[in-house]
Amino acid sequence: MKHARLIVLLSSLLMLAACSHGAHRDALRDQLVANAGWSSAIVSANQFDVAASWKTPVPGQGKTHPKTLFVYLEGDGLAYIRPNRASNNPTPDDPVGLRMAIADPHSGPVLYLARPCQYVIPDHGRNCARPYWTLQRYAPEIVDSLGTTLDIFKTRLAAENLVLVGYSGGGALAVILAAQRHDVVGIVTVAGNLDTSYWTGRDKLSPLAGSLDPADFATKLGNLPQVHFAGANDTTVGPDVTRAFMARLPKNTPVSAITVPDFTHFCCWARDWNQLSRRTELSAIPGWQ
């Protein structure tokens, strides 16, 4: 009996610690958004609730391309706490995608979308289950939920065109979403996991069963301007994954690959994004000033 009570007590303490950690991650996002003067909301989008933050344009600015919405898609977040143990909450410890969005230099509207199940557990985590941030992280229902969220904010912010900017797993989702829509005019990925079959095979990982593979959509993107950033020292994904994806693009695709020396998967995209986002290669993206 004492042993059973001890197990229950330890389980309760672990749950409290997990909740506290999740609250700390939520508070970090809230602080970043507040400091930037942005707005936030949780949107009900099909099967999931999606946490969004956005900057509205300053009146009188953004006249060159006022109807282009720049959308930043967060990475996979805290999918695992150990190699073989999934987390209870995929909210990232440090939201690199959000920090990049806030550093975006455009005067027009900028939107940040967390992945479904990030920043919504426990109060708004409809249908959230571990497979959706592990093996099924790019499942069709994940993509559909983000697509609906894009439609909602496209109307709310009076946009006509979308430029999708995806960090890490957000890069995979940017590619898949762009292949399924007709309003995306450009893709930018940063440390993007763009060929998951190649990646899991290279690292001897379990295949992402139930997920879509962005590389399978490459043939549909031959006319879409793209810029793909990779860190030279990224041992999590790496430039070779970018090359594997680009090898599947149709010939003459307007695409550029930029490998940044000394950068890893995490460092230092957010810190240097304001500068990196002014690279001349990005001028190929419609609306990118």
Rank of each mutant, 00 (worst) to 15 (best):
T200C: 12
L9R: 15
Y80L: 10
L221V: 10
E281M: 08
A114I: 01
P140F: 13
A27T: 08
G60Q: 15
D49F: 12
D26V: 04
I285T: 08
L205H: 12
A244R: 04
L212Y: 04
A284D: 10
I187W: 03
L135E: 01
T149G: 08
G125W: 12
H24N: 15
N252G: 06
L208W: 02
T280G: 10
N88E: 02
R126I: 12
G192D: 01
S20H: 11
N84D: 08
S53N: 07
T189M: 05
N193Y: 03
V165C: 10
Y80E: 06
S145A: 13
S256L: 10
A172H: 04
S39P: 02
G77T: 06
L194F: 11
R99D: 09
Q289A: 14
R5P: 09
V33A: 06
G166H: 05
C19E: 06
V255I: 08
C128K: 04
H228G: 03
K63H: 15
S40Q: 14
V163A: 07
M100Q: 07
V190C: 08
H24F: 14
A179Q: 06
Y72G: 01
G192I: 00
V237S: 00
V184S: 05
A178K: 05
A158I: 00
S107I: 03
F153R: 00
F229E: 01
A103Y: 13
A284L: 14
L32K: 02
A86D: 05
I142Q: 02
P116Q: 05
G210M: 07
A18R: 00
L9W: 13
C19V: 09
S197H: 07
H21C: 04
M1F: 11
